[in-house]
């Protein structure tokens, strides 16, 4: 998606993100952070392999187009 659109939001966001830490903060625990990072990389890897495998199957059956 065309998210150059975020630029003006980011200007505000950067200021907020670098502001002194508020009392109301809830930091994501380390294990969940790990889940987000590792899970996304595994997800992207699986998605890539799935598309390649589907392509191989459809190619062998002559069903690509």
């Amino acid at each position: 998606m065309p998210l150059l659109i975020t630029c003006p939001t980011i200007a505000t966001a950067t200021a907020l993100a670098t502001a002194p830490a508020p009392e109301t903060q809830w930091l994501l625990p380390a294990n969940l952070f790990r889940l987000v990072v590792v899970g996304s990389v595994i997800g992207l890897t699986v998605a890539t392999l799935v598309i390649v495998l589907i392509w191989l199957k459809e190619w062998r059956q002559g069903q690509l187009w």
Binding site: L16, A19, P20, P22, E23, T24
Partner: peptide, 11 residues
């Protein structure tokens, strides 16, 4: 005052 502003922002 600072805390109040932050809370308002969060709300």
């Amino acid at each position: 005052m600072q805390t109040e502003w932050c809370m308002t922002e969060l709300q």
